[in-house]
């Protein structure tokens, strides 16, 4: 090729500025719709198989525990002592326990309390934690220092210990357990929310809102809490998993819900004896349900965390 290009540059001389160039500052170009950040997170979440399995499992357990008893009838009020420890067979797909209660029906009842206490205790802990964390982060100074020392104290006392002491002292009703577990689990969400609020406070969009004269109230409800919500939601799912585990552990140690309530941990409390006697149906079905339910919430929590993280990374 001998010339510089296919066309002589002198002939290609263009006007000093084309229309597009003159318009460049007037027209910032098109904007393509992607949807809200929540929707993006939901899309990522949906693509996470484990998270979807978690959701399906939770739905299954809700139906199993609350609708199941209407489809599968069993006597959970009086056990037939004569048939105690009867193996799986006709009429009793999972056999009977040491008090002669039908295992399958009992697992359904135990699922009810696990879900009720799990959700309620996690909700209680998250509400307290979010409020305390937001107040500490927003107020700063002495209030913050004081609240955070309380959180430190709460985190230092091993939760299971204090839950056990309270469970021994107070009656094992559902409300009592919701309160006992909830009141002892808000420390982690409080610390998380405070950290989130502290970092959000320095972000430019909050500064922008301040510089236009927004009140603390508006900052909190319009900017800080909506942006900290992701952290809270992720934490709620882990809180549910923890609450279910706490309940089962307390029950296993023999200090769980009082009759007529049933909890899975209590069903397992004679575990070693039952193992020695070979009554496997009194252990593995309940234990399996317990693990699957906790696993389901952990799957959901992990999926949510990734989904909400991706939104931040994608910017």
């Amino acid at each position: 090729m001998t010339s510089i290009g296919p066309v002589d540059p002198t002939q290609a001389a263009a006007p000093l500025a084309t229309e597009a160039e003159l318009l460049a500052e007037h027209d910032a170009g098109q904007v393509y719709e992607q949807g809200s950040s929540w929707r993006l997170a939901w899309q990522t979440f949906r693509e996470n198989y484990f998270a979807v399995i978690g959701v399906i499992l939770v739905i299954f357990f809700v139906l199993f525990s609350f609708v199941g008893p209407y489809l599968y009838h069993s006597n959970q009020l009086t056990g037939s002592i004569a048939d105690a420890n009867l193996g799986p067979g006709k009429g009793h797909p999972l056999g009977l326990d040491q008090n002669g209660f039908d295992e399958l029906g009992r697992i359904m009842k135990g699922g009810q309390t696990a879900l009720e206490i799990g959700f309620a205790a996690a909700a209680l802990a998250s509400v307290i934690g979010t409020l305390v964390g937001a107040i500490a982060g927003l107020a700063g100074g002495l209030v913050d220092a004081l609240l955070m020392r309380i959180v430190d104290v709460g985190l230092a006392i091993p939760t299971l210990f204090i839950i056990l002491v309270l469970a021994v002292r107070y009656n094992g009703t559902i409300t009592a357990f919701v309160l006992i577990i909830g009141i002892n689990s808000w420390f982690v969400p409080a610390r998380l929310v405070r950290g989130e609020v502290l970092s959000l406070r320095t972000r430019d969009f909050v500064q922008a809102s301040r510089s236009m004269g927004a009140t603390q109230w508006r900052l909190m409800w319009r900017h800080l809490i909506p942006n900290a919500l992701g952290t809270v939601i992720v934490n709620v799912t882990f809180q549910i998993a923890d609450a279910v585990l706490f309940l089962s552990t307390v029950g296993y140690l023999g200090f769980g819900l009082n009759p007529p309530y049933v909890d899975w941990g209590d069903q397992l409390s004679d575990g070693v004896t039952n193992l020695l006697n070979g009554y496997w149906w009194e252990i593995y079905p309940v234990g399996g349900c317990l693990i699957l339910l906790v696993l389901a919430f952990n799957f959901i929590g992990d999926g949510l965390r990734d989904a909400l993280d991706v939104r931040l990374r994608r910017r």
């Binding site: 998993a241 585990l245 089962s248 552990t249 296993y252 140690l253 941990g265 397992l268 575990g271 070693v272 193992l275 020695l276 252990i283 234990g287 317990l290 693990i291 906790v294 696993l295 952990n298 799957f299 992990d302």
Partner: peptide, 29 residues
């Protein structure tokens, strides 16, 4: 690790006993 993370520790104990003490008879319960 995710799976085991969801296990209550007492159930871990029970399964260990079931497998290694009762089934295999290797270790005391």
């Amino acid at each position: 690790s995710f799976f085991l993370y969801s296990w209550p520790i007492f159930f871990v104990c029970l399964v260990l006993i079931a497998v290694f003490s009762l089934k295999l008879n290797w270790l005391p319960f």
